[in-house]
Structure formats: C-alpha cells, structure tokens
Write a protein that binds this DNA or RNA. Sequence first.
DNA 1: TTTTATTTTAACATTTTTGTTAAACAAAAA
DNA 2: TTTTTGTTTAACAAAAATGTTAAAATAAAA
Lengths: 198, 198
Amino acid sequence: MPLKNTGTEQLIKDTTKRLIFAEGKLHATTQEIADAAGVNRTSLHYYFRSRDLLIAAVFQEAMHGLSERLNQCMVSAKPFKQKVEFLIEVFLKDMMAFPYQETFMVTEINTLGKQLVGNIDSVPVKSFLSEVQQEMDSGNLKAMPPSQFLMNLFSLLSYPLIMAPLYKQLFQLSDGAFDELITARKTMIMDLIFNSKS
Amino acid sequence: MPLKNTGTEQLIKDTTKRLIFAEGKLHATTQEIADAAGVNRTSLHYYFRSRDLLIAAVFQEAMHGLSERLNQCMVSAKPFKQKVEFLIEVFLKDMMAFPYQETFMVTEINTLGKQLVGNIDSVPVKSFLSEVQQEMDSGNLKAMPPSQFLMNLFSLLSYPLIMAPLYKQLFQLSDGAFDELITARKTMIMDLIFNSKS
DNA sequence: TTTTATTTTAACATTTTTGTTAAACAAAAA
DNA sequence: TTTTTGTTTAACAAAAATGTTAAAATAAAA
C-alpha cells in the first residue's frame, strides 16, 4: 500500500472511466489513456501491471457502484410502484452520464463472463423478484415469470440508449431532441409495465 | 470480376460471418479467419484489400439481408397485428441463428455510424410508422409517438438476447432453458404491446 | 543531512497483427 | 503449346500495441 499517496492511481482509473464509458473510446490504448491522464505510460503498468487488469479494475469499480445504487432502490421501504419509479430514475441518470458503460459491458460480456455476475449481489435481486411475484399474485401486475418482468424493464430502459447513434440517424434527431425522447420514456415505461390488462 | 471463380471470396465472407456473428469471436484476427476458412491469409487481402474492408463487406451483406426480410414484413398486406407477429418471428429467428450480430453492431455503431443507417431502407420504416399512428388513432394501440413504439418493440426483442450470458448466469439457466424463456417472449411481447390500457 | 521507500520517467524489448511483394501455380484462350 | 489471366502461396516488412528494466526524481524518516 502506498505510503506516499499521490493520487495517480485513482487519476488513472477516473481517466480511463471517462474515456471509455463517457466518451466511447472503447478501444483506447494505454498510450491514449496515459496522455489523457497526463502521466507516463509506464505508470499504468506500475499501478495495474497490465492493460487488462486496469480495465478490469475500472469496470469492477463502475459495476459495483451501479449495482450498489440499484440495490438501494430494490430493498428500499417504498411501495412497489415508487420503488420501480426510483429504479428507473437512478438507472437512466447513470446511463446518461456514462452512455457507453453498457455498450462496453456488451462487448466484454464473454471475456468477463461469470466474473461480471459475481459483482452483482444476488440477494437484493431475489428479494425484488419475489416482490414482483407478490404484486402479480395480488393482481397489481400482469402475471408472467418475474424474470421476464425484470428483463422487460431493463430492455425498455437500456436498449434505446445503447442504440442511440442508430436511432438519432433513423429518426433524424439532434442530441437534444433524442435526450427528450429518452426522458419521456420514464413515464411511458411505467405506463406500459403497470397498465397492461390481465 | 473473376473469370475463374473458385468460390474463395464467398467462402471467406461466409466463414467470417459464422466466426463473428454466430460464434462470437468479435475480435477474430485475419489469421484466425484464414485458418477457419482453410485459405492463406494473403487471400483475404487479395479479395478484400484489408481486414476493415472484409468486415465492412460482411456486415453490409448481413444487414442488407436482415433489413430486406424486415421490410418484407413491414410492407406486407397482412393486418397490423399479424404483421407485428410476423416481424417478431423473423427477427427472433435471425437473432437466434446469429446471436452476436447485434452485439457486433453495438460495438461498431460509432465507427460504422451513418454508413450503417444507409443500409436501412427508410421507406418501409416510414410506412410502418404511419401505420402505427393509424392504429393509435383508431384506438387499437395506446397513444404515444410511433418512434417510441418501434423502440419498445425492438428493445423487448433484442436486449435479452444481447445480454444472454448475463441473464443465463443471473437466473441460473441452461442454454435450453434460456431458449425457452426467449421463445416464450413472443406471445408475451404481443400481449404487452397490444393489451395496454389507454 | 543522509538514508530509505515510493513514485515517475526514458529507453529498450517483445509480441501481435496487419499489410506487401514477388514468385509459383492453374486453367482457359490464342 | 505458349500466352495470358486469374488465383494462391511463402517470405518479408511494417506498424501498432503492450510489457520490462534500470535509472532519475521526490519526499518522508532516521
């Protein structure tokens, strides 16, 4: 552990996170990262040993943060509907700040594989899924396997953001107009999920 | 144009398509592709000049095919609901045969950018979107911007497949069990999209 | 102040992958 | 058969990226 902590290690991680997850430089080289952080490329190796380990550290940190925030939503004391509403807000906010985080996850989903799911605490997810089941039993939600409900929710939230460049082109939208479209989805998704006839 | 067509060019394209889109070797090197096709690596350059051009050719061919099949659905004479049902079937079938096609698209969405949308014929999409608007006007569909309807449909179809490795882990499912989950989504998506209260 | 541990850097080495050249090969046309 | 055209290959070259070593710089501790 560093006695003389100069903050370089965190600077490198933060810079990598910004480059890859916010600016979309998914294949940023060690040189590009070092330049952006204003340090010598060797420092990356000094602190993280290899490029792969740096990326892994950054990704783990990001996933852990997001996972923690989502878990707070899932286990909060709010009524179910408010809980989902809050979850949508938290998730959308994160995704708009780091638009390429999920894209990166998709590209690395095979290499990271099981390690990825290891970063997700399954307890809050399971508790959330059983709450979904309860809501279905009481007729507040259309009956379906709770896993499908969860996939629906995240599909509707994530996919348009992942495909943003495509949809902007297809619908001929400016960045601002597209952001409005995404923001409008919050209530739309709530509607779609909660107001379906059984 | 080759006088002595030995089929090597198409063999290389088909092998690349299989490696990348079906087997998920998203970063396959020219050597790996050549080996898989059983040809010398130089042949790749002879026919396509560079790796990038090969990939571009393969991707364009794949997108064009899918786009054509989707367009056939969109402009078919069927009633709206059957049309959507057919579209879901065609799309799911394609995605299950080439599970990494869309993942690849996500990763290359920035580099390919506008060129990508160029491969999509906008006429059938526009005609489909106006048909969606009609259905909303007649009260058969919950009112919302047609672009949102389209994004919802493709979100619900695509995202679970893109994230398959994650969901298999998270829900502890075998490949077979996951396939069932996906197959079950067909009717579930129809339900969700058509049976929402206005 | 000297010593010590940590941090940072420059120079070098290696690996990985792509791209090029020129020659060998094969088959149809002259 | 020889010529021509197209195809395939081996050997070489170059580029791009990562990883290593050893020395210089820095700041705290003795």
